[in-house]
Amino acid sequence: MSATPDTVTTPTFQLDGEEIPFQPGQTIIQAALAAGKYIPHLCFHPEFKPHGSCKLCLVKISGRPAASCTTVAQAGLSVESEIPEVQDKRRTLVQMLLVEGNHFCPSCEKSGNCMLQALGYELGVMSPHFPQIFPVRPVDASHKEILLDFNRCILCELCVRASNEVDQKNVFALAGRGISKHLIVNSESGRLADTNFSATDKAAQVCPVGVILPKRVGFAIPIGKRKFDLKPISDPGASAGCAEHAEGGA
């Protein structure tokens, strides 16, 4: 008997007690987001290969911690996500990102559309907790259409990947090591104006925080009425499993 799509049993795993169907090869976060179940994430983007660096998508699989973006789904797995132990660790990770960069939400054009800020709200981050590191990261305002404010960079590499894989321009790369790791621009001067970067590039659309901002568009939607001001990031209507929503308000 030939199997029709209706009779084929799609394999499933359990996420916080709920059955999540998956296609073979999908990672846990891919299957969860496709099924409308939110798992926090920053460096993951549905259009790109899982990266596994921010670790916000940490879950417990059969009692062991793992990054859900890089762990391939298997039938019968028991995945715990919204449990206090995991949420605590995610909260600490957000706090680490907050002290690593210079994040001043009230004056940031991305406020309300920023995934880091939204995750802070989602996870109940009331303070940065750790002593601020205060890195020195000058802004690059050289480009006529785009402002780069490196102070807010969380090193998710989405712009690096977008510029490389989609735009095929390699405008961005990472330099340095450890806490000195930072985003750089591909030109001898180090300035964005001296690259072939354009505001229509994919790389200009994917930043989950407020590093890559279009110029001359400011506060078009008032703070308080922006994406995550209206709905939390975990709401299927707000995230829909996509990082791209984050720049919608600009």
Partner: peptide, 21 residues
């Protein structure tokens, strides 16, 4: 460890520096 962390993942990149501090 703070000097040698590669900086790829958040916990090690920031955590080793916080520990050092």
């Amino acid at each position: 460890f703070a000097h040698e962390s590669c900086g790829f993942c958040t916990p090690c990149r920031v955590g080793t520096t916080l520990l050092k501090n």
